[in-house]
Simulated assay, not measured.
Amino acid sequence: DVAIMVAAVADWRADNQSGQKIKKKGAAPAPLKLTENPDILAGLAQSDQRPALLIGFAAETEKVAEHAQAKLKRKACDWIVANDVSGDVMGGADNSVHIITHSGNEMWERLPKPEVARRLVAKISEEFA
């Protein structure tokens, strides 16, 4: 019924892998060519097995609501839970989030992270009531 896609493990990965240690060849590090990892959220949104409610997350450092609104459309999901990670959120005890849906933006001011989780589960439950 619901998929909550909390975070990407990594948006990018090394383009090629070496079967052995890459040796130093001077003072500068070896160039690293990157390639995108598959977009699991966008793929699930297009899947025949798409859940009724598909929720993604967005960690932003600026224009949080604006970037999350664009991500909602780009990923074709139902909600984006967006937070500003430019401060002490990573590793901190509290968080402020925007719940971005096709019908609007709901802001939850700074709360303990377990309370954010409880409110999110309650909001999801309301969708199916």
Rank of each mutant, 00 (worst) to 15 (best):
K123W: 04
D48T: 06
V6M: 13
E109D: 15
A45L: 08
D78R: 07
L111W: 01
G92P: 00
R13S: 11
K113T: 02
P51Q: 04
Q49T: 10
A76R: 06
F128N: 03
A59G: 13
L32Q: 14
S18D: 13
P114H: 04
P29T: 12
R50L: 01
P29M: 09
M90V: 11
D88S: 14
V97T: 07
A122E: 05
A76H: 14
D88H: 15
M5C: 09
E106P: 01
A28Q: 12
L53C: 08
R74E: 15
S103M: 06
L32I: 15
F128L: 06
P31W: 02
Q69C: 03
A129E: 15
S103C: 06
L72K: 09
N95W: 08
A30E: 15
R74A: 15
L54F: 04
E62L: 06
K63N: 11
L72F: 05
A3S: 10
L34S: 07
A93N: 14
L32R: 07
I124W: 03
D1R: 12
E62Q: 15
T35P: 15
D84S: 00
D39Q: 05
G26F: 10
V116Q: 02
V85R: 09
A3C: 07
K21N: 13
L32V: 10
H102P: 03
V6G: 06
K24W: 05
A70H: 10
K71R: 12
S103W: 03
F128W: 03
V81Q: 04
D48C: 02
L111Y: 09
A122G: 08
K63F: 11
S96M: 02
E127F: 08
E62G: 13
E62D: 08
S47E: 13
D94A: 04
D84A: 00
N95K: 03
L32T: 05
I4Y: 13
D78G: 11
G43E: 13
T101C: 02
N95E: 01
G104P: 07
A93E: 15
E60Q: 13
I22R: 11
E115D: 13
P29K: 05
H98T: 02
T101M: 06
K24N: 09
E109G: 00
G104I: 07
A76T: 03
A10Y: 06
L32G: 05
N105P: 10
G43R: 12
G91V: 09
M90W: 08
I100F: 07
D84N: 08
G19E: 14
G26N: 04
